[in-house]
Design a binder for these strands. Sequence first.
DNA 1: ACCTGAACACCGTTCAAGT
DNA 2: ACCTGAACACCGTTCAAGT
Lengths: 226, 226
Amino acid sequence: MVSGNPVSRRERPAKPGLSREGIVRAAVGLMRAEGMERVTMRRLAQALDTGPASLYVYVRDTSELHAAVLDELLGDVVGSPQPCPDPRAALHEVLQAYRTVLVANPGPARVALVTRPHGPHYLALIERVLALLAAVGVPDDRAAWLVDVLLLVATASAAEHSTRGGSPNAEADDDALAAALAGVSAESHPRIAALGAEQLLSGPGPLRGRWFVDVLVNGAAETPRP
Amino acid sequence: MVSGNPVSRRERPAKPGLSREGIVRAAVGLMRAEGMERVTMRRLAQALDTGPASLYVYVRDTSELHAAVLDELLGDVVGSPQPCPDPRAALHEVLQAYRTVLVANPGPARVALVTRPHGPHYLALIERVLALLAAVGVPDDRAAWLVDVLLLVATASAAEHSTRGGSPNAEADDDALAAALAGVSAESHPRIAALGAEQLLSGPGPLRGRWFVDVLVNGAAETPRP
DNA sequence: ACCTGAACACCGTTCAAGT
DNA sequence: ACCTGAACACCGTTCAAGT
């Protein structure tokens, strides 16, 4: 009765053959097709041709589901260990790869900002960054405090510059900040007025990202922990 | 008919006397009483003894409402201009004040992470930080790129360390990351295992916050923009 | 103008019941 | 064990209608 599985396997993608993997894969597909805000239990269940209650066997929560989608996307970020001739360049590279994934997927980028990620791919990313920081010469105790912030800044800068093609909400937010900065009075806010909204806000994304990494690494090199 | 306003003013807080101010004030109250996730259009309307549709005269959106609550809280952060004998100390102070507000209010802290804030109090904060960076000796073009990140890191570190008493969600997130870091194998993740979850995760909040500010300022001082 | 009732189109999550 | 129908308790937002 069990061995042959005589009824055609996989006629439909995943009816009673539900699995966590299949669910997460479907969630990633739904997210690519319709955006993260449409990755809801109900819609996902519909896509899998079942009811929402069925998903709770494999996924605790909506937020766990979103976290799983995020980690799935991070699969490509950490390459093989690499010989690594120039560790600082390698650091820039891996963080740029991380940013690229998030810029392409604004929904998960926001997820990464709100819920501390902790999937296997994210752990691998932490490990890699720690190794590169050591190779660059940052003392271990400082690296421990730095890695978090390095990833945070990368996440935020990606989320910020992923408005093009992203959720309409994010774009409106950026516009509102730009408008607010531009509309400021030179008397009450002389510095903002002097610098101007363009100066404060953008600059070409990747260059800015690289600069921040250098600032953090250089700063950490000469700032002992208290 | 208009001048006297003969019917007792303000018998009930705000029935037909709705106003944006009143709405935001009520929202702040609701947030303090029940947490940010309960600050919904429907609940707020109920607290104001009206229907949800009425709020849309004064507030575009739920997200605009949340942003308004956040900015309201930021009112106390930027003190008077101050004589400022030691600008670096003043910088630490204002960022610490910002962090303190957000640690005390985890809901708005998360709002600040997801939607770029742009209220008047936030603009005042940007202005103040720019002035202090100049006083510290950071060149203007670097300060323009730095201010964003300085506030971002403060926001994130506050959101991270505001789990006590915050939304149960956040606490679970931190726990999950801690567990993931602690449960890592020394072979696959030697650096994480060597440092340990405690080292990587916490350390006393304010000290860590101060350290980051110093790292960023020191790093910016010696890292020219590309 | 400002305010409202009522509706539309959704949510997450649980639970008793089925297989 | 795994899966499900149905329900519970919510959401944001709009719109025609009232004052």
